[in-house]
Simulated assay, not measured.
Amino acid sequence: MAKVKVAKKDTFIDMTAMSDVTVLLLTFFMLTSTFVKKEPVKVTTPGSVSEIKIPEKNILSILINPEGKVFMALDKPDDMETALVALGGQYGVKFTPKQIANFRKNTTFGVPMKKMSAFLDLPEREQDEALKNEGIPTDSVDNQFKEWVKAAKTANPDLRIAIKADQNTPYSVIKNVMNSLQDIKENRYNLITSLKAGEGEKK
């Protein structure tokens, strides 16, 4: 008896719905994600059990590395430009439009004013390397850190100050930063730490 051959048919699966879901998920994550700011040095913050989060906007971040060098960051380029121009006028340094544009691109800064013009003329990759060896002066003779804070607060009075120091940073350095803030009547600030449960940076 002859065998009956069943004709094979191609199976068609409509992937339109799956593609739509994928695009929607991708769009959702792109819109809700918070990008981590580039920092010139790696800082390992001390642990804390507090779960209070600092705001994500209008933040003046103070970064202190293990060697005690101080850097700063502002989340709004307009505030950065205003503070730079104000401080430049105070120290007799004029910046070109190109230098100001380069400064607005930075997420973190920390160079003495006398070196700022030369620093801003460097390519972006070289700026990142040069920044690691600098830091904002905080000594009693020329405390540019206080002037930066005052200029930033003048540019945006709603700024909240957040201090992020490495767990190995000498306490004397952190105390000096806090004393500098107190000298200019800035007595409210957040200390950024890592939640001991490992859930990110908190107050």
Results as ranks from 00 to 15, higher is better:
Lys114Asn: 12
Leu87Met: 06
Gly92Asn: 07
Ala83His: 11
Lys98Asn: 08
Ile100Val: 15
Val111Ser: 15
Lys98His: 08
Ser117Met: 00
Pro97Phe: 06
Ser117Ala: 14
Asp79Gln: 01
Ala86Lys: 04
Ala86Ser: 07
Pro112Asp: 06
Ala86Leu: 07
Lys94Gly: 06
Phe95Ser: 01
Val85Ala: 03
Asp79Cys: 01
Lys98Ala: 13
Leu87Phe: 01
Val93Ile: 06
Pro112Tyr: 14
Ser117Cys: 05
Lys105Leu: 06
Lys115Asn: 12
Gln90Glu: 14
Met116Leu: 10
Gly88Trp: 05
Ile100Glu: 07
Asn106His: 11
Lys105Tyr: 06
Ala83Pro: 01
Val111Pro: 07
Gly92Ser: 07
Thr82Glu: 04
Phe95Lys: 01
Ile100Ala: 10
Val93Pro: 01
Val111Ala: 12
Met113Val: 15
Met80Ala: 11
Lys98Cys: 06
Ile100Tyr: 11
Val93Gln: 08
Gly110His: 15
Asn106Tyr: 09
Pro97Lys: 00
Met113Lys: 10
Thr82His: 10
Phe103Ala: 05
Arg104Ser: 15
Val111Gly: 11
Met116Gly: 02
Asn102Asp: 12
Lys114Pro: 02
Asp79Arg: 01
Ala101His: 08
Ala101Phe: 13
Gly89Lys: 05
Pro112His: 15
Lys114Tyr: 13
Tyr91Met: 03
Thr96Ile: 01
Thr108His: 13
Phe95Asp: 02
Val85Tyr: 02
Leu87Arg: 04
Met113Gln: 14
Phe95Cys: 06
Glu81Cys: 03
Asp79His: 03
Val111Leu: 08
Met116Phe: 07
Thr108Cys: 13
Thr108Met: 08
Ala101Asp: 09
Thr107Ala: 13
Phe109Ser: 06
Lys94Ile: 13
Met113Gly: 06
Asn106Asp: 02
Ala118Phe: 06
Thr82Gly: 04
Gln99Met: 03
Met80Tyr: 05
Gly89Pro: 00
Phe103Asn: 00
Phe103Trp: 09
Lys115Gly: 10
Pro112Met: 09
Asn106Arg: 07
Gln99Arg: 02
Val93Leu: 12
Phe109Trp: 13
Lys94Phe: 07
Arg104Cys: 10
Lys115Ala: 10
Thr107Trp: 13
Asn102Met: 10
Asp79Val: 01
Gln90Arg: 03
Pro112Trp: 13
Gly88Lys: 03
Asn102Val: 07
Met116Tyr: 05
Gln99Ile: 01
Lys105His: 07
Met113Ser: 13
Met80Ile: 04
